[in-house]
């Protein structure tokens, strides 16, 4: 059977408000923790943006190295980072 790749939903499909974590479960012992927890800031980025941040950290914060690895120009990679910074600032304001 083909495995479905699940993505973390970030906003409510009904009203588009940011979603919160209300339940966490341990698969080993079936313990469930309930409450209302905020998603970490980075987890609220889109999957592509989060992957970019991970790649950025892995390349020691070198945009030049990232540009080489991705086969993109330096300003393209820097613009992507600037856009993610803008997204983070927008999330922080919510």
């Amino acid at each position: 059977m083909k495995q479905i790749k699940k993505t973390l939903p970030l906003s409510c499909p009904s009203c588009a408000s940011p979603l919160k974590v209300t339940s966490l479960a341990c698969e080993a012992c079936d313990t469930t923790v309930s409450g209302s927890f905020e998603l970490p800031l980075l987890a609220r980025l889109s999957a592509d943006d989060l992957q970019f941040v991970i790649d950025f950290v892995k390349s020691s914060g070198s945009l030049k190295l990232m540009a080489q690895q991705l086969g993109l120009s330096y300003p393209t990679v820097r613009n992507r980072l600037d856009d993610i910074i803008a997204s983070i600032e927008k999330i922080e304001k919510i």
């Binding site: 086969g71 993109l72 120009s73 330096y74 300003p75 393209t76």
Partner: peptide, 11 residues
């Protein structure tokens, strides 16, 4: 093309 090439190489 500048998605792929810029800076000193493009110059």
């Amino acid at each position: 093309p500048f998605t792929y090439i810029a800076g000193s190489k493009a110059l």
